[in-house]
Nucleic acid binder design. Structure first.
Lengths: 177, 177
DNA sequence: CAGTAACGGCACGGCACGTGCCGTTCTTGA
DNA sequence: TCAAGAACGGCACGTGCCGTGCCGTTACTG
């Protein structure tokens, strides 16, 4: 997995081959194929091994600050750092490999979304949000524009932009008097 | 281009090869490579040739109805119909092919976004929206969750969901008294 | 300590890539 | 009207990676 990330950063996902990974890692191809069914699955595991710990939500009592902090961290890791192109390519691979799509969803997207919703839920129970607000939709409105920038328009995903989306979201989320 | 869409629907993008397209079209490979630098570029042209006309905005005076109508149509074409998997794969390909990414942006995403913003602008000038509302951000909040569903979570992109996003957006967009 | 599973290394057939070279057909401009 | 040249369909080639066999060796397990 370490070699996968190294070679992936050097060559880009398109030119990355299992053959080359195995060769550089000093490993037979069988040993790779025994564990991972595809290049995408291998990359998913490799990326998760680097980012799993960094994506937990804090709960300081201040919802907005917590969202900001967590999203800034996630964006810095997956949209700013050297792993960003590989992460983008992984999402790309998921578009035509159903196995990768399911694994990516199950092991990264869904848990991350669930954490966000859980944090929103906690805030709602504390009266920081309108009781009738659709939390799933709020999560999508928060995540959607960020992935839209990252994957579609390619515009830079800056902390400032994250804040703009947060502002817009909270403009409609505040508890009603 | 017709053969590309046909074969693409039959085989899926991953198994689609320029070799097979040329063979079925009764055409030399040179003839394909002379026009398109890559499989992705060919698919982009092929898809645009089928969908370019269908994605214009109406202006009936009612912003919300116009947005609904246009987005429902776009979603039906790109997320519901038989071309949906190919469109998703094209966005996927853009993640590791900068040429495809740029062309996709320039020839589809950006014009479409510009149309949405222009329609919002017209509505704002008519007093249907708060004058200080950030129209680019509104466009992203509208598009983002839809692409998020389509490309990331894979949940079905239904007209009902489109309406939910529209509802949420308009809750924060209405002109202030 | 014996049996076995996993290993690194190598070779193989298969496929699509992108690019040459053929001889033919179509277009264009004098 | 016709000649020059561009574009064409067809074919073949070398290349790279795929995924899978088969070696003999090493490492674990009971």
């Amino acid at each position: 997995m370490r070699t996968t990330l190294e070679l992936g950063q050097e060559l880009g996902y398109a030119k990355l081959s299992i053959e080359a990974i195995a060769a550089r890692a000093g490993v037979g191809k069988h040993t790779v194929y025994r564990r991972w069914p595809s290049k995408g699955a291998l990359l998913l595991d490799s990326l998760l091994s680097r980012s799993a710990s960094a994506l937990d939500y804090p709960d300081s009592g201040d919802l907005r600050a917590d969202l900001r902090r967590q999203i800034h961290e996630a964006v810095g890791l997956l949209a700013g750092g050297p792993l960003s192109p590989l992460f983008k390519s992984l999402v790309g691979e998921a578009q035509h490999d159903p196995g990768v799509a399911e694994a990516l969803n199950e092991r990264f997207i869904a848990p991350q979304a669930a954490k966000t919703v859980a944090r929103l839920e906690a805030a709602r129970d504390q009266g920081q949000l309108s009781p009738d607000f659709d939390l799933d939709l709020a999560m999508a409105i928060l995540s959607g524009p960020l992935y839209f920038r990252l994957l579609i328009t390619g515009e830079p995903l800056t902390p400032e932009y994250v804040d703009r989306v947060l502002d817009a979201l909270f403009a409609g989320m505040a508890p009603r008097p």
